[in-house]
C-alpha cells in the first residue's frame, strides 16, 4: 500500500469521528430543545421560570 493510502485513511478516520461527534451533539441539542418546547406548550414550566421577579431586576 502506498503512503497516500495511510495519509488518506488517517485524515478520513479523524474527519469521520469528528463529524460523528459534531452530528451527535447537534442532534442531541435539537431533540432536547424540541422536548423543552413541547413541555412549555403543555404549560409545564420550571418553577424559577414562572417566578414573577425578573432575573437581575430590582428588588
Amino acid at each position: 500500500m502506498s503512503h497516500t493510502f495511510y495519509i488518506a485513511m488517517s485524515y478520513g478516520i479523524a474527519g469521520l469521528v469528528s463529524l460523528c461527534l459534531i452530528g451527535w451533539v447537534w442532534l442531541d441539542g435539537r431533540a432536547r430543545r424540541r422536548e423543552l418546547a413541547q413541555l412549555e406548550a403543555a404549560g409545564i414550566r420550571r418553577r424559577s421560570a414562572t417566578s414573577p421577579a425578573p432575573e437581575g431586576g430590582k428588588a
Binding site: 442531541d28 441539542g29 422536548e35
Partner: peptide, 21 residues
C-alpha cells in the same frame, strides 16, 4: 463541543425534572 454537550445535558436534566413535576 464540550460547552454544547454541557448545554444539552442541562436541558436533558430540565426535561426530566419538568416531566417529574
Amino acid at each position: 463541543l464540550h460547552i454544547a454537550a454541557m448545554r444539552n445535558e442541562i436541558w436533558r436534566r430540565r426535561v426530566s425534572a419538568q416531566r417529574r413535576m
